[in-house]
Amino acid sequence: MTAVADAGLDLRQIEQFLYREARYADEHDYDAWEALWTDDALYWVPAGDDAADPRSQVSVIYDNRNRIATRLKQLRTGKRYSQSPPSNLRRVISNVEILGTEGSDTVVGANFVLVESRTRGMEIWAGRVTYKLRVVDGEIRLAYKKVSLVNKDQPLPTLAFLI
């Protein structure tokens, strides 16, 4: 991990962070992945309509920091059957762009393609990710991650791994 200055994240640092986050998720490194989040974290996978208000419409995932912790605790029991055994995952993050800033957060957009293999078969997941990154104590942290799946309006297979 490289320490970074409080402001002015450059694209290379951002990419390194996103790749690391992706690797932790791919490799089910729940502790390392959880440590990336800020206390006001929001992890969101919309269903159907991106523009819908997640407080009045259901989402696939809409986790605050607390619920991220619960989700990970469940995975760590080893008895979350939809991830026990865990899926084999590899994802590619690409088209990384700095979209702007929101307060002290840097807003970043990227595309991803993820291949999931488990006994049920192979699934291809793809979509657009929006991240909000914040420098806390000299390290980049994740405050917000929204994963907008290309097929979010279609029936989705089980999505119990970290996307």
Binding site: P54, Y62, R80, L156, T158, L159, A160
Partner: peptide, 15 residues
């Protein structure tokens, strides 16, 4: 949202 659907902490396991 926590319980049901593809990522639900209950229904993913039923499924």
């Amino acid at each position: 949202i926590g319980s049901v659907g593809p990522a639900g902490m209950l229904l993913a396991d039923d499924t």
